[in-house]
């Protein structure tokens, strides 16, 4: 997964693109380099500008400034219908008055491909997304949510784009099916070898599928890296918190000292420790140790989450089921974490 060995050639790059709606800078000076065949995910909270950015990349909107290069060629002014890219919309935007086959064949029909060739191509695409042949003549309105998802994918693939954009295509789908489709999406990416640029507000989803993740906040990309890097080395509290529950120690406020941690050893103003790195340290084997009382426990399936009270500071720890056995609310004891697992943050 972390093979930095053979650098892949770039396919899409942006240089300082911005777009404003009135006073609001929805996309603010975004520059990215995306490699050929990469699964690149942009994650951010609602309203951070993800859709605005991807619409600009797809050619559906024009940026106010900056430019977009496709294999080194400036395509900033090229409209969507002339770009070798295709987008899967959040609403899927299937053509509701048509059949599955007609939806998938649309791009070919626009190119003037003959009916038989179109049909053959559509059936091949249906095979790629694992949609049974019988669905060819069915109206799209009679397909289930998951099937419509596949129709949208097949329709996008049928136009043979170099880059596929996805704007939260799974957000309206229930949890179980979403998990299945996430895996299929990743599988599809591998099989087609195309560049996928994916948008979601779920970092969990991004982690599962992506080669690289960019975190977006208020119109800017604040951190870009592999899922591993984003998870292990968040560069800001925003990224750390976006990743789920974390323990953030403010170095300056003296709490660390109260916990018995020598603040002098840490130069950054904040220290972030993920719940799974906090562990009972009764035998004194952790770099940093403090006393805490277990206030609550929550069963999360394979892991158990504990809420701790360390002299007034609330902390969260997560232990695998085996290690969690025997720890109950009310227990007071030594807890700790290692230096290597704590991430110092500037803001």
């Amino acid at each position: 997964m972390v093979e930095a060995s053979e650098p892949r050639p770039g396919i899409l790059s942006t240089h300082g693109i911005s777009k404003s709606f009135g006073e609001l800078r929805a996309v603010d000076d975004v520059s990215i380099e995306i490699a050929d065949g990469e699964f690149f995910t942009i994650v951010g909270p609602s309203g951070s500008g993800k859709s605005t950015l991807v619409r600009i990349l797809a050619g559906l909107d024009r940026p106010d400034s900056g430019n977009i290069l496709l294999r080194g060629e400036d395509i900033t002014a090229t409209p969507a219908n002339a770009r070798p890219t295709c987008m899967v919309f959040q609403s899927l935007a299937l053509f509701t008055h048509r059949t599955v086959g007609e939806n998938i064949e649309f791009s070919q029909k626009m190119k003037g491909v003959a009916r038989d060739a179109r049909r053959e191509h559509a059936l091949r695409m249906m095979e790629v997304v694992r949609l049974p042949r019988e669905y060819y003549a069915r109206p799209v309105t009679q397909c289930s949510g998951g099937e419509q998802q596949r129709v949208a994918l097949a329709r996008a693939l049928a136009s043979d784009p170099e880059i596929l954009f996805f704007d939260e295509p799974l957000s309206a789908i229930d949890y179980r099916l979403r998990k299945i489709l996430e895996v299929e999406m990743k599988d599809l990416h591998r099989r087609t070898g195309k560049t996928f640029i994916y948008i979601t507000h779920s970092l969990e989803e991004a982690m599962v599928m992506s080669d690289r993740i960019a975190i977006m906040r208020s119109g800017t990309l604040i951190q870009t890296g592999t899922p591993h890097e984003i998870y292990r080395r968040p560069e800001s509290r925003f990224v750390a918190e976006f990743m789920g529950e974390v323990n953030i120690f403010t170095v300056a406020d003296g709490r660390l000292a109260e916990l018995g941690i020598a603040a002098a050893q840490i130069e950054a103003p904040y220290l972030v420790v993920r719940p799974e790195y906090l562990r009972p340290a009764g035998n004194g084997d952790a770099d940093f140790r403090f006393r805490a009382e277990v206030t609550n426990d929550y069963m999360l399936g394979s892991r158990t989450q504990f809420h701790l009270d360390a002299g007034g500071t609330s902390l969260v720890a997560e232990l695998p089921a085996l290690a969690a056995a025997g720890i109950a609310p009310g227990d007071v004891g030594e807890w700790g974490f290692d230096r290597a697992d704590a991430v110092p943050l500037a803001d």
Partner: peptide, 8 residues
């Protein structure tokens, strides 16, 4: 928009 994006 989808149709436009698909080359129409």
């Amino acid at each position: 928009e989808a149709a436009f994006d698909l080359g129409a």
